[in-house]
Design a protein around this nucleic acid. Sequence first.
DNA 1: GTTGATTTGTTCGACATCGTACTAAATAGT
DNA 2: ACTATTTAGTACGATGTCGAACAAATCAAC
Lengths: 153, 153
Amino acid sequence: MPDTNTVPNLTGLYFELFNEIGIINQLSRTSFEARLPDGMVLPHFTVINHLIRVQDGQTPLQLARAFQVPKTSMTHTLAGLEKRGFVDMRSNPDDARSKQVWLTAAGRKFRQEAIASLSPDVAEISDALSVEEVTAAISLLVRLRKRMDSARD
Amino acid sequence: MPDTNTVPNLTGLYFELFNEIGIINQLSRTSFEARLPDGMVLPHFTVINHLIRVQDGQTPLQLARAFQVPKTSMTHTLAGLEKRGFVDMRSNPDDARSKQVWLTAAGRKFRQEAIASLSPDVAEISDALSVEEVTAAISLLVRLRKRMDSARD
DNA sequence: GTTGATTTGTTCGACATCGTACTAAATAGT
DNA sequence: ACTATTTAGTACGATGTCGAACAAATCAAC
């Protein structure tokens, strides 16, 4: 009986991996967004979070690259954040083509509140994996991500 | 100096994890879709793949649940597959409300070709992780996914 | 300096995703 | 049997995502 149900070895393994990643992404996104107010969506939060972790004043293009999304998508996300008063878009004094994205006090406050409201969800699932396992998973995924990133031309 | 940049311990760890997962999902999706013909999109492939791995003749609702997407999204995905002749939608003889999704020969052929065209991409990144690491990552993510799944209500 | 190429960001159009409201079929309660 | 509830699927509208085309600023080459 020919092996038609199974994908050849290695490729199949990565299919499985990306499939799990896709489903977890789906699940985490859905439960994140359920906690966020009205029209806020995961990328809104993620951008704010990134601006705090890394640094304020990044350009839209830098942000688009950090998240591996097209710059048009980032434009849209930033427009939503600006409309809600969570970021300020100032033009870059060093390069009039580009802009800088700065967090407002409201933006920082929003992040704190979002995190607080999300923590219970994290707590609920945190018994599935040990802290060591989560840490290990992160470093492994970071390695994979960087490899994938450098592979795209 | 107060700790405003760092998210409290555990929650921050999961943020990082989900963040990496999100980016990898982004990257894998983009490179998958680049290989697929015209208007085909990742969910199209994923559904076909699932029908082969598990079994033909699933109902749309079963598929929606398997991928954790709303049933309206699955309706849309299946409509695309049917339009392209990759699946047949027959009405369920046991329950006139529901339908069954059956793969066509063209659907199976499409999957084989898609996998073949994707393999080079997998090969290119496969040196980042050992097979054992990928396997370990999968089992860990499966555990997480199942926990998240059982946690939603 | 002037011209052509590159970079940054936006607008626009196409399409995917998903919540709401609906129809039809099945099931439960009486 | 009859009605109410539940379940499967769809139509529709709102919004997110993203590729193509564009405008403005910068850079490179001469």
